[in-house]
Design a protein around this nucleic acid. Sequence first.
DNA 1: TGGGCGTACTGAACCGTTACGGTTCCCGCA
DNA 2: TGCGGGAACCGTAACGGTTCAGTACGCCCA
Lengths: 341, 341
Amino acid sequence: MSNAYNRPDQLSPELRKRVLDTARRLGYPGPDPVARSLRTRKAGAVGLLLTENLSYAFRDPAAVGFLEGLALACEDAGHGLLLIPANPEHEDVAAVHSAGVDGFVVYSVPDDDPHLAAVMERPVPAVICDQPNLSEVDRVGIDDGAAIKGLARHLIELGHRKIGVICMRLARTRNDGPASSERQANAHFHVQRARLAALSEAFAEVGVDWEQVPVIERFDHTPESGGSAAAQLMETDPEITAVMCTSDILALGALSEVRRQGRRVPQDLTITGFDGIDDAERVGLTTVRQPVMEKGRAAGRLLLDAGESTGRPREVVLDTQLVPGSTAGAPRSVEERWFGP
Amino acid sequence: MSNAYNRPDQLSPELRKRVLDTARRLGYPGPDPVARSLRTRKAGAVGLLLTENLSYAFRDPAAVGFLEGLALACEDAGHGLLLIPANPEHEDVAAVHSAGVDGFVVYSVPDDDPHLAAVMERPVPAVICDQPNLSEVDRVGIDDGAAIKGLARHLIELGHRKIGVICMRLARTRNDGPASSERQANAHFHVQRARLAALSEAFAEVGVDWEQVPVIERFDHTPESGGSAAAQLMETDPEITAVMCTSDILALGALSEVRRQGRRVPQDLTITGFDGIDDAERVGLTTVRQPVMEKGRAAGRLLLDAGESTGRPREVVLDTQLVPGSTAGAPRSVEERWFGP
DNA sequence: TGGGCGTACTGAACCGTTACGGTTCCCGCA
DNA sequence: TGCGGGAACCGTAACGGTTCAGTACGCCCA
């Protein structure tokens, strides 16, 4: 039976035809993929675990780019891509347990995510993106610290010393407002933690006390969040000359809020982002471009390349690129010092 | 064993604990999802079949919107979403056969697609989007004819009689150039066929002979395709006053090509699209908005709502909306008749 | 004519889980 | 003490395909 469908060379054409005819007559719908998976121990699919609601993933251009790359890699290998419904609110891990996949890609989840823990318990390989803390697992990412340091030095050269920061959520608990140093240091989202730490280092080099730098956190990753955070910054710390955002989405929201309030960018206020999404480049946002699609592709390749299990986990670090843009300029005070008021 | 994991009420807490402890000690990784699926006859996932490469799906905003809605519906039901690698070039149907899913959503494939045929052979329910021809299956879509007729009447009222059309691929075979009436009538992509037929009807009502209307087909659905098609139209049929595109992506490409050639829109040439993607509304494209996200959501709901099998297939037809925009205006000649040259 | 060999085909074990029916055990009650 | 009954637990049969050992048979050659 099995042979008739999958191994035509193992039996005579006439028997094969007879078997297939009989099967059709009996209404046999073809081999059951699940039973096949059970026997062969292969599911032919890769599971993707996201930190956000599935539907959100399609609204964030960076996530969409990642998905595109991952889908590409899966397609090349003939594997399906299973999006796992892991609601970050509920701690319901059942979806991870019941996913019939040959491996997992975990994208940008906090290090204490119960779904991540569930993935690690499954006896299949996993690749983690943007979350290097687990030492046992293959990972792909960028050098977040170096990337944002480049951006910081760019602003420092322009003369900025009084900056404000808008960052994405630092933990699974909602905190829309200032993020204390402790909260920053204990952030469960490694990417955010790394970026903030690197900023602090870069500015320490020119004598800026990080304790004095306002860091506004937002739970929802939307332009509206960026806008409200920018408004908050401008009200509580009006002396800042630059707003650095840890994502383009936040930066674009901040940009439009700042302009809505009648301030000119970059003359009155410098704004920077992170990611390099299309819309950011379109409006000339000063940012850092990271190869999101390549990241997805690399993750898929790593997972499917039958990791020759060298013992040590493999790591792929992709390059980033400073995108100067037009939303960063010399701060007011410096300008005035050189050219008068 | 099974009970220990899944039915805590069936046994005493202490036995459960003992079982679980022993299991852990033995390195038991938890119940195998594939075996569970085999036994329970449920996979906990929905399969999505697309006409394009998986990676392409993430580049077309309309498709992304659809995915978003579908993912939402799946998430609500606790189901995963499996993207099936169905390369339209290869006729390799194995991926459909080996997908462990409880049902399929088929999005915008041609009616002679072998993958579609493979889906129909599987003994699981399916929902088809934008492809109503199969009478046996639940479907969700819009009234393509009525929608584009509204747009056509809009142009007719403005005074357009000499138009050109740019459409997406009509069949699985590549044909970048004029589409004959036969090819239009025999198009395997029902959506395109319906739109062209409706346009022909709308213009017939004002005495336009459809045989004289140039219809340019493009295989790749990209802005570049739209641009080159527009260039082709302007060269072969310079007398046309309007270009109607069957998608916004094509229209945006056409728009930028037309402007690149120094023609003003809509003064020199009217351009219209279809879909209502964000970028289209941003640049003020005259188009028809269709609820892509709702479409995905409806498809998911239909599939997962345990179709109470009323015998007749169910059908969901969503509303569309004319978006006037700023890329459609009165044609030159009429303008001149009223206001002088 | 018989031994050896290769091909075509058959049967049974196994993958790991869940569903289901049977068995034990314990408690309350007469 | 005997009995009814329910809770707790256990054993086993599928689910449907793959794989592999084993059988039957035809053929060649000695």
